[in-house]
Nucleic acid binder design. Structure first.
Length: 254
DNA sequence: ATGGCAGACACGGTCTGA
């Protein structure tokens, strides 16, 4: 079983890439972020025609998340319960016995800004809610665009002490790990300078100037099933790509 | 080095992202 996360930066624009990628990789579950479309504009017919189900939490212009899955998703939750938020950043559902939490974490804009404060409040609310989710679901994955590069090796030096790599953001990431979650990517030997996002400008992809900010954190029970985790750079090389690459988690049968 | 790209909305310029 393969579970992936991919910030598509507009589902409307990236739908052909998504459908091609699903057909090529035979991924079972994909968590999508930055749909940038309302629910009524969600391309459900195209996704169902490709053999997938979809649940989504959309928003006009900004944000928006979805879970695309071979098996039907159940027990769907949209947004963090008990956290008032206009922005559509969370969808959770159970697929094949795995609790899948898909998140588009706030960007934060700049350290010390109002949006940065919102990012930290959102992370705190997420952490509190996940504690109860983990109590109810032994096998859980938190997949998404975290907008946090957890360690120095996850960021090109140009971004040191900036947004995505600041001390409070990294502390919030470690608070998620402290719930009993593991960064699946770091369970394995990986090469140097592996990132999941590259700026569209400055030929950043060609120069490999980027950040590893898209993650799959797994609970202990799910960690026992993990057989691999990799970043798939292929879609980033296409014409008109998302600025993020998908990250793929492989699981042994339960 | 934060400018320079990309998408949405709207149809030019602004906002946002990372």
């Amino acid at each position: 079983m393969k579970i992936a996360t991919w910030n598509v930066n507009s589902l409307k624009v990236r739908l052909p890439h998504l459908l091609d990628w699903l057909a090529t990789t035979q991924t079972d579950v994909v968590c999508l972020q930055e749909l940038k479309c309302e629910d009524k504009a969600f391309p459900l017919a195209e996704i169902e025609a490709a053999g997938y189900h979809a649940v989504f939490n959309g928003q006009k212009t900004y944000n928006g998340v979805a879970i695309i899955s071979r098996s039907e998703a159940t027990d769907v939750v949209r947004n963090i319960p008990d956290f008032a938020d206009e922005q559509r950043r969370i969808i959770a559902a159970t697929v094949d016995g795995v609790r899948v939490v898909c998140g588009y974490f706030p960007n934060g804009q700049a350290v010390g800004s109002e949006k940065f404060a919102y990012k930290l409040q959102w992370l705190e609310a997420l952490t509190t809610w996940l504690r109860s989710e983990l109590a109810q679901h032994a096998q859980l994955v938190l997949a998404g665009d975290y907008n946090i590069a957890p360690e120095d090796r996850d960021a090109t030096v140009e971004w040191q002490d900036e947004i995505h790599v600041s001390v409070p953001e990294r502390e919030a990431f470690r608070a998620l790990l402290a719930l009993g979650l593991t960064d699946a990517f770091r369970m394995f030997e990986q090469g140097d300078k592996l990132y999941s996002w590259w700026d569209y400008r400055m030929m950043a992809f060609r120069r490999n100037i980027g950040l590893r900010i898209d993650h799959l954190l797994v609970s202990d029970a799910l960690r026992a099933r993990v057989t691999g985790c990799l970043i798939d750079k292929a879609p980033r090389k296409l014409e008109r790509p998302s600025d993020h690459a998908p990250v793929v988690l492989s699981l042994a049968a339960s």
